[in-house]
């Protein structure tokens, strides 16, 4: 049994301690917005936030994050109101959409740490999240738009 605090909700999950958080979320808790892409922290599709920090859930054991606040894409905002989501939707960033939960949560972590990110900040924060559709041009644009929204006081 592992105790997890997911999107503000305490959950007791019947898994072994070393089960990757990704599969706990997807197969045991039923939160499928977090995606499997590689299983070795090489693609970032499984990125979630733990204590507000981006974490690759595919190589993070469930026990290691027991009790810590976990945020998945489902818990980011009600009605997609988070400025990053709004910017993503306005810029029509997604194509296939499979990597976008990881992209969005990585962008959220970046903007929380650096509300006015430079191009270099964006490059660094986003380099670990792959998009085979190549939506990177729009990701850059959306992050800047989200930063502007947040600067105007628009928070989720």
């Amino acid at each position: 049994m592992v105790n997890l605090l997911i999107n503000g909700k305490q959950q007791e999950v019947d898994v072994t301690a070393d089960t990757p958080l990704l599969w706990v979320l997807r197969d045991h808790v039923g939160l499928t917005g977090t995606k499997y892409g590689c299983g070795i922290a090489a693609c970032g599709a499984c990125t979630i936030l733990v204590d507000g920090q981006p974490v690759r859930s595919c190589i993070t054991s469930a026990a290691s994050v027991s009790g810590k606040p976990i945020t998945t894409i489902e818990g980011l905002s009600a009605e997609n109101r988070h400025p990053v989501q709004r910017a993503w939707i306005t810029e029509d960033v997604p194509q296939c959409g499979y990597c976008q939960s990881g992209q969005i949560l990585s962008a959220v972590a970046l903007l929380n740490a650096k509300p006015k990110p430079t191009d270099e900040d964006i490059d660094e924060a986003m380099s670990g999240v792959l998009c085979r559709c190549g939506t990177y041009v729009r990701i850059r644009r959306a992050i800047k738009k989200a930063a502007a929204l947040m600067a105007k006081g628009n928070v989720a």
Binding site: G33, D92, G97, Y98
Partner: peptide, 27 residues
């Protein structure tokens, strides 16, 4: 014309094959 799928794909709601759940389903 805005994409019809941007909202679902920006909120984790878009369903791909691996996200399907059926009662009693095995992997």
């Amino acid at each position: 014309v805005p994409r019809t799928d941007s909202v679902d794909k920006s909120s984790g709601k878009a369903i791909f094959a691996g996200d399907m759940r059926l009662p009693g389903m095995l992997t």
